[in-house]
Simulated assay, not measured.
Amino acid sequence: MTPEDLANLEHLRRARDLIDREYARPLDVPTMARHALMSSGHFSRQFRAAYGETPYSYLMTRRIERAMALLRAGMSVTDACMTVGCTSLGSFSSRFTELVGETPSAYRGREHSAIAAMPACMAKLSTRPSRAGSPSSRIGEAGDPAAA
């Protein structure tokens, strides 16, 4: 890895840290790109190359991940949606269903006591949202090498 590549990764990490820290704020790609000291287009391409998803997709995944924790704690779907920075309940529900595989209401109504009993590192891994069909969404499935 060249020194330029390392510098780019450092700048991308700044933007990713911004997303992780300020996910509930209105964030757009130009704002994230400014934190990475890059143009919007270059930032989007570099972010996708480094992290495997677009900056907006990463932001929405973080929001859904936080919303899952709020829903497990009993918060209403609408309140969770607004708390994590989403302004459209319909878009939030669609993205939640896409990433989690069930509606926010169904997720909220399901039993979550097993997650509370897990070590935090395992709970974080097992509750991390991922697109259906991606390798990380199949961890633990029968026939999956990670299940053995």
Results as ranks from 00 to 15, higher is better:
residue 50 A to D: 00
residue 81 C to M: 02
residue 119 P to G: 08
residue 146 A to H: 04
residue 143 G to I: 01
residue 61 T to N: 00
residue 30 P to V: 09
residue 6 L to T: 10
residue 36 A to F: 01
residue 89 L to S: 10
residue 48 R to P: 08
residue 119 P to D: 14
residue 40 S to N: 11
residue 98 E to K: 14
residue 145 P to D: 11
residue 128 R to L: 15
residue 148 A to M: 02
residue 126 S to L: 15
residue 98 E to M: 13
residue 138 R to T: 01
residue 137 S to D: 03
residue 105 S to H: 01
residue 25 R to N: 07
residue 16 R to T: 07
residue 124 K to T: 08
residue 101 G to M: 06
residue 148 A to P: 00
residue 115 I to G: 10
residue 125 L to E: 15
residue 41 G to S: 08
residue 36 A to C: 06
residue 89 L to G: 13
residue 134 S to T: 10
residue 112 H to L: 03
residue 126 S to Q: 11
residue 117 A to K: 00
residue 130 S to Y: 05
residue 57 S to H: 06
residue 129 P to R: 08
residue 63 R to W: 04
residue 39 S to E: 15
residue 122 M to Y: 15
residue 3 P to S: 10
residue 22 E to R: 14
residue 127 T to W: 06
residue 96 F to K: 06
residue 80 A to Y: 04
residue 53 E to N: 04
residue 31 T to K: 10
residue 92 F to D: 06
residue 52 G to D: 13
residue 98 E to S: 15
residue 36 A to K: 03
residue 72 R to G: 11
residue 134 S to C: 07
residue 79 D to Q: 12
residue 32 M to P: 12
residue 51 Y to W: 10
residue 86 C to M: 15
residue 33 A to V: 11
residue 99 L to H: 08
residue 131 R to D: 05
residue 3 P to F: 00
residue 71 L to D: 06
residue 148 A to K: 04
residue 128 R to G: 09
residue 53 E to M: 15
residue 23 Y to Q: 10
residue 90 G to E: 00
residue 66 R to K: 12
residue 28 D to A: 12
residue 69 A to D: 14
residue 46 Q to W: 03
residue 94 S to I: 09
residue 133 G to A: 04
residue 13 R to Y: 14
residue 104 P to N: 05
residue 29 V to A: 07
residue 127 T to L: 14
residue 137 S to E: 01
residue 62 R to H: 02
residue 100 V to P: 06
residue 60 M to S: 07
residue 12 L to N: 05
residue 82 M to N: 06
residue 33 A to K: 09
residue 12 L to H: 07
residue 118 M to H: 03
residue 46 Q to E: 00
residue 64 I to S: 03
residue 97 T to F: 03
residue 88 S to K: 14
residue 40 S to H: 09
residue 136 S to Y: 03
residue 106 A to H: 09
residue 62 R to C: 01
residue 1 M to Y: 14
residue 121 C to I: 07
residue 61 T to R: 15
residue 125 L to G: 00
residue 126 S to D: 12
residue 114 A to I: 11
